[in-house]
Design a protein around this nucleic acid. Structure first.
Lengths: 232, 232
DNA sequence: GTTGGTAAAACTGTCGACAGTCGGCAATCG
DNA sequence: CGATTGCCGACTGTCGACAGTTTTACCAAC
């Protein structure tokens, strides 16, 4: 069974201008080089990147479908600005998907899945100890991707991946408030314990707690930085 | 809707070419004017529609993000072919989303929502009595969209809308086996009754039953027509 | 100082064209 | 006779350009 390939490029040709532009824009947005609500000029971008407008437009469409950009006809593309309500919605949907996933997972919890998840938690803990905030987030997401993957519904995983782009957006939006390494470890080990117990109720409780913690962190962060509510 | 079988009017005049092309392609795919797995030529399409390749490409990207087309680098776009497993996954995800939605709905079941849903069921029943299969499906989906809407999470609704495109794909794929009008009515009235009762357990049971029925119909249909074995 | 109108600038939507690449076919070689 | 290789056609990826629209800047009037 092929492990899910998370972010950038494990393989495959990167001679694709569209993908390159999309990656560039994604990074730029997540790292806040563009402010939320900011308008992106196609000509400006194509000049900066040294390509024509066609691949820029296609990449922008791609990011629009991922919820990172918003297109307004005859106006152009704008960086998605999440307000508090939308943020709650994102985490609520995440809860919806992961509850379902973990329930399915209890019905097909193979030793292979157990091993892979445990290993990923270790990787995550290692990453959490370091300073690279981006990597910590990616390893965290990768753990959840693994859960979704072993839940045995690829479409469910795709839905999570779609959502993950927005998750990155609002998580890195408040990169200052990051959880302590031991909190992360505890939180994920609880998930593993619940899965090992085989009890759906315990799993549900664990995932509710887990996502609730993450949600609280982000909501708190938005409260501190002030929510970005401007988008006509 | 006048769908061109051989030679469409080579001219579409309205503002948004991309959306028009996307709508045209969506209809054409759903109504099986293109077979699953078939390759779509950009030049051919742009010639037929009387537009340039740029809007065709953008529309194709859009449909790719909706899961109706699949892009292979340097090869072009292919009509998505769903196999049995993917089909199960689609309905499982639908179950995931609607379970969550109906649970939320019980917590905020306003008279307005009640009225709107009831009215939509009546519209649906009326549509079910007629012969227009497409309209019946649309009104059915619209009822569920309303449920998702009144569940109060716009992101959840968007996830459903994304999925709905694939639902249409596999439902109309087997348009012959359509449910009897009274079955549709009964099934939806059960949902309304469950919501009126205010019991989350009853709601969950109702939605599980409802989607289970729909799933069975489609799975049966695929079994009859033979599953469209997929893309390499 | 503010407001309203007009004109210029910038931008998006769309188009046609060119180059690199892929798949298929046929001629050639073992 | 089967496999390999070179060629040909078709197609996608990308580009620069044009037209219509939106935004902005400027100037005049109150």
């Amino acid at each position: 069974m092929a492990l899910p390939t998370a972010a950038p490029r494990p393989f495959i040709h990167q001679q694709n201008l569209v993908e390159q532009v999309a990656d560039y824009l994604t990074q730029a947005i997540i790292q806040q080089h563009f402010l939320p609500g900011e308008r992106l000029s196609e000509v400006q971008l194509s000049r900066d990147l040294g390509v024509s407008r066609a691949p820029v437009r296609e990449a922008a469409r791609l990011l629009e479908s991922r919820g990172l950009l918003i297109s307004k006809p005859r106006r152009g593309f704008f960086v998605r600005a999440l307000n508090a309500v939308e943020l709650e919605d994102v985490f609520d949907l995440r809860l919806c998907l992961e509850r379902h996933a973990i329930q399915r997972l209890t019905e097909r919890y193979t030793p292979e899945a157990q091993r892979a998840l445990k290993q990923q938690v270790e990787v995550l803990c290692e990453a959490a100890a370091g300073n690279d905030g981006t990597r910590r987030i990616e390893e965290d997401l990768q753990f959840h991707r693994l859960m979704l993957h072993y839940a045995g519904n690829e479409r469910l995983l795709r839905a999570f991946d779609d959502l993950a782009h927005e998750l990155r957006l609002c998580i890195t939006l408040i990169t200052k408030t990051h959880e302590a390494p031991d909190t992360i470890a505890t939180s994920h080990f609880k998930l593993l314990d619940a899965l090992d117990s085989g009890s759906p109720a315990a799993c549900r409780e664990a995932i509710d707690y887990h996502i609730g913690v993450a949600r609280k962190f982000v909501v708190k962060g938005v409260g501190e930085t002030g929510d970005s509510s401007d988008e006509g």
